[in-house]
Design a protein around this nucleic acid. Structure first.
Length: 444
DNA sequence: TTTTGAGTTGTTCGA
DNA sequence: GTCGAACAACTCAAA
């Protein structure tokens, strides 16, 4: 019986350019790939037709097929990762476990306990950077502390790209270089994988929400800066869900962004920025980065929250966005800002309520970016919009959906009697918001 | 240590 | 219709 290493897939569901898989395959021993449907996460999902579960299930099934074509397979488990890896580590054929790093609070705790369990068998958990370009301590100010303002962070991030780490002659940044994982497929362990549990086995049903393609036309990226603000146009890449689950490589896309469009590259820097913020300041998961803002007296009216969720606020651009989200698991970025501003400022509902709703619905939900974005909108974040910057939903619609194509698609009744009246008056809500924020921040 | 310049995505008002 | 200033001071980054 040969000794082998385990490669544990998590948020890196691909074979190409996968850092941890590459390192595992380069180790001396054959590699057995595994995936775990984590009950700690799945049990918290209320929607039994969660589109992300359907998506992951499909991806895992494909991954298993691909590995079988390589003469190997994928062992898929359903349960608590620490318990499963404890059982596996007691097998004397298992040497070490390889995986890619995950930076969320739950994942960090989970990996710590897995590490302990493995250590009790004198086995190691080897972890690698794969999900982002730069980790939290790779981009720091000259005094060694983290940036909390985006622009200087980005400057340093771009500078770092050009640093020479090795002597290769390639002009491609070292940090964008792909891991030639496929070259080492011979080192995959030959075995018959366990039977893949069905969605129903895990208490879920197939969702009918389609997943955006992972191939984006170069044209979209090339014109990203011109077109990204118009929700009626296919001007954004919709790659978020693929970054989230690692079905594409961030290095590969960053490399393309570098040559095709600075603004798109900038969005990928934002992704690293908010990941870095979450790593250095884990509290931002559910607390305002700026403590003063915890003093805001949210109105938190549940009826109004429900109207917002359902897209029944009487503000066409807001309702269009929420209905797009509810129906597709996606919302255009410009509209995300508008609905977030509306919830926190017009309705004075705690940004955490909105953040949780997005977490439930968004295919591309990512804790770091989601809490970063919501805190930006609420004004309580790192680099936040000043609180008096309150989006006017009418002006935003005129500017970015001039022909009302997007609005008409989701709110066809906007001009008819059947459309709900505005839930609040813009001017009154604006003044109420300014007053509420002002008194909270002045400690009154 | 002090100083200086700057900060994703806006809106409103009045000239 | 267009334009600039005010919004309200504050914190951060870097010299």
């Amino acid at each position: 019986m040969p000794l082998y290493n385990i490669f544990w897939f998590r948020r890196d569901l691909r074979l190409a350019d996968n850092a941890g898989l590459y390192h595992a395959l380069k180790s001396e021993l054959p590699v057995k790939p595994i995936f775990i449907f984590d009950t700690e996460i799945l049990n918290k999902l209320d929607d039994k037709q969660d589109a992300r579960v359907t998506f992951i299930h499909g991806v895992i099934s494909e991954l298993k097929d691909e590995l079988e074509k390589q003469g190997s397979s994928l062992d898929v488990y359903y349960g608590n990762p620490t318990e499963i890896l404890k059982d596996l580590s007691e097998n004397s054929e298992v040497n070490d476990v390889y995986t890619n790093r995950d930076y969320e609070r739950y994942a960090i705790a989970r990996d710590e306990s897995v590490k302990k369990v493995l250590a009790s068998q004198n086995k190691n958990l080897h972890t690698y950077k794969d999900h982002i370009i730069f980790e939290k301590d790779e981009i720091l100010k000259s005094d060694g502390t983290p940036y909390v303002v985006f622009t200087p962070y980005k400057r340093k991030w771009l500078e770092k790209l050009t640093t020479k780490v090795d002597e290769s002659k390639q002009s491609l940044s070292y940090f964008f270089k792909p891991y030639p994982t496929e070259k080492y497929f011979d080192n995959l362990y030959a075995f018959d994988g366990r039977v893949l549990p069905s969605l129903e086995d895990m208490g879920f049903e197939k969702s009918s929400i389609p997943i955006p393609s992972k191939t984006t036309s170069q044209g979209v990226i090339r014109k990203y800066d011109e077109q990204r603000n118009f929700p009626a146009v296919e001007g954004t890449t919709r790659l978020g869900v693929h970054f989230r689950f690692g079905t594409i490589s961030i290095r590969d896309k960053a490399k393309k962004a570098q040559t095709l469009n600075d603004t798109f590259l900038s969005e990928l820097v934002w992704r690293d920025f908010y990941s870095m913020i979450l790593q250095h300041f884990p509290k931002v998961e559910d607390q305002s980065f700026r403590e003063k803002y915890e003093a805001i007296e949210w109105r938190n009216n549940e009826k109004e929250f429900e109207a917002w969720c359902k897209g029944q606020t009487g503000y066409p651009i807001v309702d269009a966005g929420m209905r797009e989200l509810n129906n597709t698991g996606h919302m255009h970025n410009r509209v995300r800002m508008i609905v977030a501003s509306f919830l926190t400022k017009h309705l004075l509902i705690d940004w955490r309520w909105g953040e949780r709703y997005f977490a439930e619905k968004l295919l591309d939900y990512d804790l770091a970016s989601n809490s970063g974005g919501w805190q930006w909108a609420a004004g309580c974040g790192t680099d936040a919009a000043p609180y008096f910057r309150i989006f006017n939903p009418y002006t935003q619609a005129d500017k970015f959906d001039k022909k009302r194509k997007y609005i008409k698609k989701w709110v066809p009744e906007e001009d008819s009697d059947s459309y709900v009246d505005p839930i609040v008056d813009h001017k009154e809500a604006r003044e109420r918001c300014l007053k509420t924020y002002k008194s909270a921040l002045n400690g009154e």
